[in-house]
Every structure is written in C-alpha cells, then in structure tokens.
C-alpha cells in the first residue's frame, strides 16, 4: 500500500514532553523508555505523535517498523503482566492504540484521510466521484463478467484490468505526494483537490481488492 520509492527518506521527528516521572526525554507519549512508566491515556492522540514523528505524507515503512518495535518493548501487556491491574490495562490500551496507529500510517488512504482532517480539509464526498463514474461502472462490468465466466485466475481480461488499475493508482499516489509533500498550510484551498484525488484512490483500492480476490480465488 505504500509507495516503494518513498523508502529512502527520513521521517520528521517530533518528540513528546519529557516523562512526568523521571524527566527523561521520551520517544513516544505512551511510555518512558528510561523509567518504564506508562502514561495516562489520551483520547485522540495523533498517530504520528505516538511514534515520535511529526505529521508527514511520506512515510518510511522500515523506520516506522523499527519505532513500533522500540515502543512495543515498553508498552506490551506481556511485560506488565506482573504489575497491578491498572498498569496491565494501560499496557493493553497503549499497545492496541499503537498497533492501530501503525496500521493507519501504512495505509495510504487512511493516512491521507487523517491528514486532510488534521489540516481542516473538506469531508469525504458521498457517492462515486463524477469524473470516475463511467470508468467505475466499466470496471465493475468487466469484473462481473470475469466472475460469471469462472476460471478468474487465468483470465487475461482480469490481468489487463489489474495492470490498468495499478497504473492509475500509482499515478494518483504520485499526484497526492506532489500535493502533500511538503504538507500544505492548514485550510489551504489545495485540500479540496487532495480530497478529490483521495476519493478516486479509495475507489481504485476497493476495486483492486476485488481483482485480487478474484485472482487468488
């Protein structure tokens, strides 16, 4: 789901306030690596902040994963199983929050959605984007045909469609990167354009899921 050409960049650091217990610098607001203290839960933390990063559209999966492991080593419930139940519950909560944030950050659609909201952009439009309507209908028709004909895995029509959709997806992702890296100002008019592109991306991803399901069936 992540643009592979994005793997060489470094993600911007943004470390939280020092630990309230021992004053040490922390990587994540969830826990202190120095004294091991788990902090009280926040209701809607930024998924980037949980990993000690500033919001950015371009993410580096390897870097994120490394961070996930470092922070999980502090928060995982297994490592707090011996402590009292409030600590164990915090561990459970924090680790779940971290895992959810990790999933979101690696998902192009969900990460972009979060950034649009963060920057005060427009909400998702209802229904299929106008300029995509005809194409979506056409794609779905091809997929219905393939499904009814059986032998989907061997279908050349499916392979052609899959390749076309992949190319489109790549183009949309490139476009989003141009618009979102560096991040635009909050409430910038460009967010409307970003929203349109994201709605297109969402449809492409959905149809690609269907092609993948047919290919592996």
């Amino acid at each position: 789901m992540v643009d592979p050409s994005a793997q060489t960049t470094h993600m911007p650091e943004a470390h939280p306030a020092p630990c309230s217990g021992c004053e040490a610098q922390r990587l994540s607001p969830l826990a202190c690596g120095s004294c091991g203290k788990l902090s009280e839960p926040e209701t809607h933390p930024s998924p980037f902040q949980l990993f000690g990063f500033a919001p950015t559209w371009t993410v580096c999966p390897a870097e994120l994963r490394k961070r996930l492991m470092r922070i999980t080593r502090l928060t995982h419930p297994d490592l707090h199983a011996e402590h009292d139940s409030s600590q164990a519950q915090l561990a459970e909560h924090h680790t779940a929050q971290l895992n959810e944030a990790y999933r979101l950050l690696l998902d192009d659609v969900e990460r972009t959605e979060w950034l649009i909201e963060y920057l005060g952009g427009p909400p998702a439009s209802k229904g299929v984007p106008q300029d995509l309507l005809m194409e979506v209908m056409e794609w779905n028709e091809t997929l219905d045909d393939v499904e009814h004909a059986g032998e989907a895995a061997a279908s050349s029509a499916l392979a052609t469609l899959d390749a076309e959709l992949q190319t489109r997806k790549h183009q949309v992702l490139q476009g989003l990167r141009t618009l979102l890296d560096p991040l635009p100002e909050p409430n910038s008019p460009v967010l409307t354009q970003i929203r349109e592109q994201l709605d297109v991306l969402r449809y492409l991803v959905r149809i690609l899921e269907r092609t993948k399901a047919l290919q592996t069936a």
Binding site: P77, A96, Q97, N99, E100
Partner: peptide, 11 residues
C-alpha cells in the same frame, strides 16, 4: 479487524 492484525488491537 483485518486478518493478521497484531494484537492487542482496537478499531
């Protein structure tokens, strides 16, 4: 919650 999600997790 998708298959192969790391636990604990919430959604």
């Amino acid at each position: 919650i998708e298959r192969n999600s790391t636990i604990p997790c919430s959604h």
